[in-house]
Design a protein around this nucleic acid. Structure first.
Length: 502
RNA sequence: GGGCGCGUAGCUCAGGGGUAGAGCAUCUGCCUUUUAAGCAGAGGGUCGGUGGUUCGAGCCCACCCGCGCUCACCA
């Protein structure tokens, strides 16, 4: 930060330190130990009764002050919202002198009785004020007013996106409406966990630090373990460990945890993100599609009380069953090309004709994926399962029981975005080894994201894994969808940022 | 990395060649039902940085730095 700006802030901070000392001299402890709260802003307003003087004890942060000599009004904000307080020197004596030394941002406890002002605002008439925490930095507070048309106008809003992300604690205080999105995130995860638990599946934890990374096509973060003197990777997926647990005999395991991918950042990508993966033995991807429908239904109704959502101005309805379309059919319809029999040259020609950037790709699977992403995916607005993917795109999925060249895999799309990925898990260790070897070949041909051979995983499969259905859901993106947020940074408290420039 | 945009007081912003502005916030005084409280006064800026053009540069030019959006890669 620029030194001069720093100095200017310091003038304000210096004044706060002076107030701190003056408060101590007056005998007020600026940082209290506790306060017995028995009400909150929301309850006070909800339970207001003209005839009774409710006595309440509340605590919160001062968000506005209007001083009028020997009496003052202020608004304090707690976790339920704001409420006005009224303080008079006649009522609180010496504390009024302390109040004169308080600022917006300070945290106080107020005991008093509830009343309604001349102008009709339910307020607390203070009989006792306790300073709980003195602020040493000025809060970038906004003021609100209502214009002639009845629109809420916010003045001096704390709007710098970078500062909001870097200092989320300030953002949460002064733009407190964002708390709702994060509360919804929390409820979505709880609801999902609750649904999985009630199905009898076990929540487990598997390593974040892995000697071999796998389970997805992505570049990892690399780190080093000193005592072992070995390279470890931050996991890019939980998949291979969770399937080992299915080998071990559990009746369904899931994990909700952070995965890490060392790739670009934008409105839908953060380097660490939250993933839910579920594996259920003796089931296949058909069963899993229905399970996803039920789970999303449970979350939508449980958290939001509705199946109707709006995302980026488009209406979405989560009624079951979701639409289903096979990848082959969808591409046939859009391009007239049968991707099962098409040659690489035909796919490249089609991509060029459609204006799809294939940037030197040669692998058939990747070409198909590019064309699909460009021409089909954006049109999948209502919840849709795209089923049966090319084998070479899915080295961990089981070959389709009747369609050659495909695997039993589906992805769920909503509002043109992928929200889940699932398959009938490959449990044939011989086939798995061949797929891994195919990946090694792809890697040698320059595909940095191709899988490595995980010998221990193959060994686990050789001990026998029951037929299993597996699912992955990107939690951040699900939350974005359900809370109508277009940036992943708005559903993650502390999104990754460039290092702060001093 | 490419393209577009932004950077002026603590916050939100005006000013587009003539020597720095507004509102809020801060400080002082008055004010015991206010609510963007009010009234009177005060302080606060090397206008993101460096060079250049000019008698004179927030303003024009070049380069750099930071941030946002977007494209590419990707969940």
């Amino acid at each position: 930060m620029d030194e001069n700006i720093q100095q200017d802030i310091n003038v304000l901070i210096k004044r706060r330190f002076e107030e701190l000392n003056e408060l101590k001299i007056l005998g007020f402890e600026p940082f209290a130990y506790s306060y017995d709260v028995n009400s909150n802003a929301e309850d006070i307003k909800k339970n207001f009764n003209e005839d009774e003087k409710h006595v309440v004890k509340i605590a919160g942060r001062i968000m506005a002050i209007r001083r009028m000599g020997k009496a003052s009004f202020a608004h304090i904000q707690d976790h339920t919202g704001r409420i006005q307080i009224y303080l008079r020197k006649d009522d609180i004596g010496d504390s009024y002198n302390a109040f004169k030394l308080l600022d917006i941002g300070d945290i106080i406890g107020i005991e008093g009785f509830v009343f309604k002002t001349k102008t009709g605002e339910i307020s607390v008439h203070t009989t006792s004020m306790t300073l709980l925490s003195k602020t040493l930095r000025p809060l970038p507070i906004a003021k609100e007013t209502v214009d002639e048309q009845g629109n809420k106008v916010i003045h001096d809003q704390f709007a710098d996106k970078e500062l909001r992300y870097r200092q989320r604690y300030v953002d949460l205080v002064v733009n407190s409406e964002i708390q709702e999105t994060f509360l919804q995130r929390s409820r979505i995860i709880s609801s999902m966990r609750n649904f999985l638990d009630s199905s009898g599946y076990i929540e487990v934890e598997t390593p974040v630090l892995q000697p071999l990374y796998g389970g997805a096509a992505a570049k990892p973060f690399t780190t080093h373990h000193n005592a072992l003197d070995t390279t470890l990777y931050l996991r890019i997926a939980d998949e291979l460990y969770l399937k080992r647990l299915i080998v071990g005999g559990f009746n369904g395991v899931y994990e909700i945890s952070k995965d890490f991918r060392n790739e670009g950042m934008d409105r839908t990508h953060n380097p660490e993100f939250t993933m839910m993966e579920l594996y259920v033995p003796y089931k296949d991807y058909e069963w899993m599609m229905q399970y996803v429908e039920k789970m999303i239904h449970h979350i939508c109704t449980g958290v939001f009380g509705t199946l109707d959502f709006e995302y980026e101005e488009r209406k979405i309805n989560f009624n079951s069953p979701w639409q289903r379309v096979s990848m082959v059919d969808a591409l046939m319809e859009k391009t007239g090309l049968d991707i099962l029999t098409a040659q690489v040259d035909e796919l490249k020609a089609m991509a060029n004709k459609l204006g799809v950037d294939i940037k030197g790709l040669e692998a058939k699977g990747k070409l198909i994926d590019e064309i699909f992403s460009a021409v089909v995916q954006p049109e999948l607005i209502q919840p849709t399962f795209v089923v049966d993917y090319p084998l070479e795109l899915s080295p961990l999925a089981k070959k389709h029981r009747s369609k050659a060249g495909l695997v039993e895999r589906f992805e769920g799309y909503v509002a043109g975005r992928e929200i889940c990925n699932a398959f009938s898990e490959l449990n044939d260790p011989v086939d798995q080894r061949e797929r891994f070897e195919g990946q090694v070949k792809a890697r040698e041909e320059g595909d940095e994201e191709a899988h490595q051979i995980d010998e221990d995983f193959i060994r686990a499969l050789e001990y026998g894994m029951p037929p299993t259905a597996g699912l992955g859901i990107g939690i951040d993106r699900l939350v974005m969808l359900l809370t109508n947020q277009s940036s992943i940074r708005d559903v993650i408290f502390f999104p990754q940022m460039k290092p702060e420039v001093k």
